[in-house]
């Protein structure tokens, strides 16, 4: 019952926030990018244009127990030049989990890894995760060059987290620019300040409070078709790989890998846009760090930063 109430509470916050934005601007509504929930395209704001954007991401379900994580972002973007866009974000998160790991215990989701929770306790808490800055530089335009190319960098800093995310963005358009194909390669290097584990080997850093380091390498491809004015629909595919430490080229440090796939829907108007993507984890996941049975169930991984379903909605306004 408690889980249900919390679940509903997240939904009310998410829904009311997004609906209020939608209702506020529906009168003058029209919109723009992003076409995808998880993939990026090479489009940037023209010089002097501004945009505000809200992200809401639900991460749902494990092979056991309760697993509900909500991540929220508020973003302000500005076109410094016609090719260079800069943004700032506020990042918050909420978790409601219980008996969510294969051992049957409760463990914090990765985004809450610096918190501790009793093995038989429900974790039910929110947090301010940190602030991010972002810069996107468009090298080639998909409208005038054979392929669009953009470079992206996003540092994040929070009370107990640091991250630097780098991304290569490719885009190819077809059919009067109504069909958009995008591909992304993302490398994210993360530091999380974790509490020492008294049960760990005293000679290891896990025994003491320390900065845990991890690298995410994600490959993504997506396609979108503008099937009628203002409306686009498409598909997104992600391959996410995690590594212990900061070297993504050391196969001995890989911890797990998963695939996600799902549809998206985008409305873009003159001022307002909203994009929704729903992803399902596909079979084929690997858990290199936890080869014991139970971590891969039905071909999907249930550890670290992975779950069964993801729903992301982005809504924004141009001015």
């Amino acid at each position: 019952m408690k889980s249900g109430r919390n679940h509903a509470a997240i939904g009310i916050i998410l829904g009311l926030g997004l609906m209020s934005l939608g209702l506020t601007f529906a009168g003058t509504a029209r919109a723009d990018e992003p076409l995808f929930g998880y993939l990026y395209t090479t489009d940037t704001l023209p010089k002097g244009k501004k945009e505000i954007e809200l992200w809401s991401t639900l991460r749902e379900g494990r092979s056991q127990g309760d697993f509900h994580v909500w991540e929220g972002r508020a973003e302000v973007s500005y076109g410094l030049t016609d090719r260079l866009q800069v943004s700032g974000y506020l990042n918050v998160a909420y978790a409601n989990v219980y008996h969510n790991v294969p051992s049957g215990e409760t463990a914090p989701p990765e985004i809450f890894a610096d918190y501790s929770v009793g093995a038989d306790k429900r974790m039910d808490r929110g947090r301010f995760e940190g602030v991010s800055a972002e810069a996107v530089y468009r090298v080639l335009s998909p409208y005038t060059d054979p392929v669009g190319l953009a470079l992206y960098v996003e540092p994040t800093i929070g009370p107990r987290t640091r991250e630097i995310e780098s991304r290569l963005i490719l885009q190819k358009n077809f059919h009067d620019d109504r069909v958009v194909i995008a591909a992304n390669v993302t490398v994210g290097q993360e530091w999380r300040y974790l509490q020492g584990d008294p049960a760990a080997d005293p000679s290891t850093e896990d025994f003491r409070d320390h900065w845990d380091k991890e690298t995410d390498v994600n490959f993504g491809v997506a396609a979108s078709y503008r099937f009628r004015p203002n409306w686009s629909a498409g598909l997104e595919f992600l391959n996410e790989r995690e590594f212990a430490g900061l070297d993504p080229f050391d196969p001995g440090k890989r911890t797990n890998m998963a695939f996600y796939f799902g549809p998206n829907l985008h409305f873009g108007g003159e001022r307002f846009f909203v994009t929704g993507t729903f992803l399902v984890q596909l079979p084929g996941a690997k858990d290199y760090a936890n080869p014991a049975p139970g971590f891969i169930v039905g071909g999907i991984t249930n550890a670290d930063d992975f779950e069964k379903y993801r729903l992301r909605i982005k809504a924004g306004y141009y001015f």
Partner: peptide
């Protein structure tokens, strides 16, 4: 409770459909 929760974002998707055009 769950079904209500997931329907809220869908309502948002429908909200801007009546946006006006500029001639």
């Amino acid at each position: 409770m769950k079904s209500r929760f997931y329907l809220l974002p869908l309502a948002l998707l429908a909200a801007p459909a009546a946006a006006h055009a500029t001639t």
